[in-house]
Design a protein around this nucleic acid. Structure first.
Lengths: 142, 142
DNA sequence: CCCTTTACTTATCTTTTGATAACTAAAAGG
DNA sequence: CCTTTTAGTTATCAAAAGATAAGTAAAGGG
């Protein structure tokens, strides 16, 4: 196994991951959010509350554009804003009840699709799966 | 290990994959192509020649928009067009020499970044890595 | 205090991407 | 042949996303 061949497999693998995640999150297009807005909401889902700076960093957006999209998300009633008491320059954003509900719907559909994908696997295979996931995350995708 | 927990790990994993691939292909922004155009070129890289219909399917674009982006890529000298002799409605697109060179640069940088990521691993670990990659691709990302 | 830095916002403009209607030309099927 | 289907193109418009300049307000550091 040369490094070249391993890299080929790596490329094929990442392409497959992108395709499958795209497939699993196709529920997003039923909701009234743009791809960039979804990315922001997804980030809030795993790490709440977040500041505009954190979002800009992680979603690869400029601060002005982040600010604009957050305003739109507030207008849509999907997230809420509060000033940080410890540092009043910082603004803390979190999902609103509606936002939580929407993300719950999307994640639920994704989970269902995931379950269907692994439905045929035995308990042993699921454990192997989990170990493979953790191995890759620890050694490559960190 | 409930299915719920496995799904949580799956979500974290796919997020990590997206982040790392984004990091590895950051060389794209040095080149004069938009994200959508890059996606098309990447597809040509693995499957040449391709028709507009195939690209539209796989890159999730409408045929008119695919046609427009292909025209731009031709104008930039990154790909070439030829009519299929067997069916003269079909147009066959392939990377030009310049296009090959550009994608070679980008993939080369990505491979270098990948090598750096796995640099500290032993031969045994690399084999485990390969097996994990293949396991996941076979059982989940297909 | 005053000055600088940090965090964010507003406004504006450009580019990219998405959607749709209308068209051309070749193939396929009676 | 003639009609329908398939493959792709052109044109146009709207929405989304990116870039940048200029501003506000709070914090931090002499």
């Amino acid at each position: 196994m040369t490094h070249d061949v391993l890299f080929q497999k790596f490329v094929a693998f990442t392409a497959a991951v992108h395709e499958v995640t795209h497939e699993l999150t196709r529920g997003v297009k039923n909701e009234d959010v743009t791809p960039v807005q979804y990315k922001i909401l997804e980030y809030m889902m795993v790490s709440q509350p977040v500041t505009p700076s954190e979002i800009a960093d992680c979603a690869d957006l400029s601060l002005p554009n982040t600010s604009r999209e957050l305003r739109k998300l507030i207008e849509k009633g999907l997230c809420e804003k509060a000033t940080d008491d410890a540092d009043r320059r910082r603004q803390l954003f979190r999902l609103s009840a509606d936002g939580q509900a929407m993300m719950g719907r999307i994640f639920g559909q994704a989970q269902q699709g995931f379950e269907e994908r692994v439905a045929g696997l035995t308990e042993t295979e699921l454990q192997e799966l989990e170990q493979a996931l953790e191995l890759l995350q620890k050694k490559v995708f960190r």
